[in-house]
Design a protein around this nucleic acid. Sequence first.
DNA 1: GACGATGTTGGCAC
DNA 2: GGTGCCAACATCGT
Length: 264
Amino acid sequence: MPELPEVETVVRSLAPHLPGQRIRNAEFQRVRLLRNDPDEAAAALRGRRIRSIERRGKFIVMTLDPPGYFIVHLGMTGKLLWNGDVGKHTHAVLTFDRGTLVYTDPRKFGRLHYSEALPPALEELGPEPLLISQEQFIADIKKRGARLKALLLDQTFLRGLGNIYADEALFRAGIHPLAVSRRLTRARLAGLHAAIQQVLAEAIAGKGSSIADYVDSDGQRGSFQHQHRVYRRTGEPCVQCGATIRRTLVTQRGTHYCPHCQKR
DNA sequence: GACGATGTTGGCAC
DNA sequence: GGTGCCAACATCGT
């Protein structure tokens, strides 16, 4: 479900509620997505305060006081709901003085993790796409020989892009998803850098894309799905040239592109 | 009812 | 070390 713009939206919707609040109680189901023992995680969280909540790539990091981290990754179908309903797919509930934080995830691809230190997966993330300079971005890509879309999805290369925004950025830059990274010209890579930053900024402004069930912590859907130019538009006309949008597979992921606007 | 698709990523093979 | 494939899971559309 959630890529950078969706996770950013969830974090922004939680920021007014969480910082400063003390965790009165924590309850976890015994499910694979919790990295800890449920009882140990609950015991570790009880009594601690949330000092801050921030996004790192697609991870949500809550810094605690006394020190520690509670880390959430929403996977494909994870939701963090403020005062949300507890249901069949609820795996965790944190109770505060002034509300509850409910984690729900039907497919269980998400991750919940209490940790004393920042886990390696977070340390190994690549740069933030909204912060990386054009020069650095071009230099990094020039070192790699992967197909460009696979590289954009690699979180250790760049943090935060997923299937939707990789397709949308490649379309805006006019680059074929199977293009070999190091063979692209500097000019085209400069265009890709700009396209990534534009599409992410616009998607954040639209509060993310709600394809099926994505919502922020207040249960609000995003609107950016209405601005998608290629993602899930297979068979429809290209908004730029009218050619028929195609779908193929790259790294087992559905990949949408315009065969006329995105030359290899 | 079966089959294939779905916003992710980590582990394994080459 | 870089790259690519598959599995983990539930649900929905054809």
